[in-house]
Design a protein around this nucleic acid. Structure first.
Lengths: 90, 90, 90, 90
DNA sequence: CGCTTAATATAGCCAC
DNA sequence: GTGGCTATATTAAGCG
């Protein structure tokens, strides 16, 4: 048993749960702002790196590859080749 | 004119640019970790909120809607400015 | 249960699934051509409109805004329905 | 000299250019609807193809490859390898 | 032609 | 664990 079994119902009536909800939403929005800020930082690094003459597209690929399991990558390539052979493409 | 007009060429030879690239990549990876951490925090808030009896789906929609409202406002202002420029109203 | 549980296997052997795949790909390519054609039509309209003295940038913004307004309306309705469900109001 | 040198100015005054603009916008919106319809058709084909056991991601790749110039692809791969060598990744 | 914004594709998440 | 949905990442287009 719970003192507030259905906060949603309370929203329309007392506003108590509404206040709690507001707090949650504000926390989320604050965190999302932070996240967006970091995303901007990343963009800046790419901008800087581009200004130094590096190819951003390739750097992105490297970063992605470092995350990705090498085996999975090989598997993907293998099945892709299989398909291409079936279609007579190369 | 630039002291390093083609970093790509350097990569294969001296490795100097390779070192610089490595630095960039590590910065990016550090920032992406931070970003992922915040994403986790957000998930936690949703978990908590769910534990308090709120419907996560609805809360997500509210958050999205509030963001959209903000965007909408910006859009409206943007187009208003465009019009004013077009009409020579400065 | 399915008559062809693993088309990928068939590709390398009989080529039957390869044929089916080819059909799919050709359908997709035909549709993408159509789509590109329409995109060209849109470009033409913008060209025409520009020739009539309108500012394409502004017109694009108006179109985007009208679309956004429509989306916004749908979003509002969606969240309203969600709330009603959550509150047991059918 | 032109009978309507600045349609934008007219918008605020006579509404004549406003009417013309409306026509343009409606044409654009109609075309964009068509385009969206075809995009949906494409999605359907992918859905169907998926239901037949094909891997949509790979099929997308094939479609993209068929568009792409083979030389460009090889060049991309070459430079990627170069970078990876420089970083000691394989 | 580079930079910014829109379209598309991918991946992660959540509910069933 | 599968499938839909949202969010992110990539790619393409438009503009100056």
């Amino acid at each position: 048993m719970n003192a507030r079994p259905d906060p949603n119902a309370d929203i329309a009536s007392t506003g108590v749960a509404g206040e709690e909800l507001k707090q949650f939403i504000e926390r989320i929005e604050r965190l999302e702002e932070e996240k967006a800020g970091i995303a901007d930082d990343i963009k800046e690094v790419f901008g800087e790196l581009k200004g130094r003459g590096f190819d951003t597209k390739i750097v992105r690929k490297i970063v992605a590859l470092r995350k990705q399991d090498a085996n999975e990558r090989q598997e993907q390539e293998a099945i892709l080749e299989l398909y291409m052979q079936a279609l007579g493409m190369q």
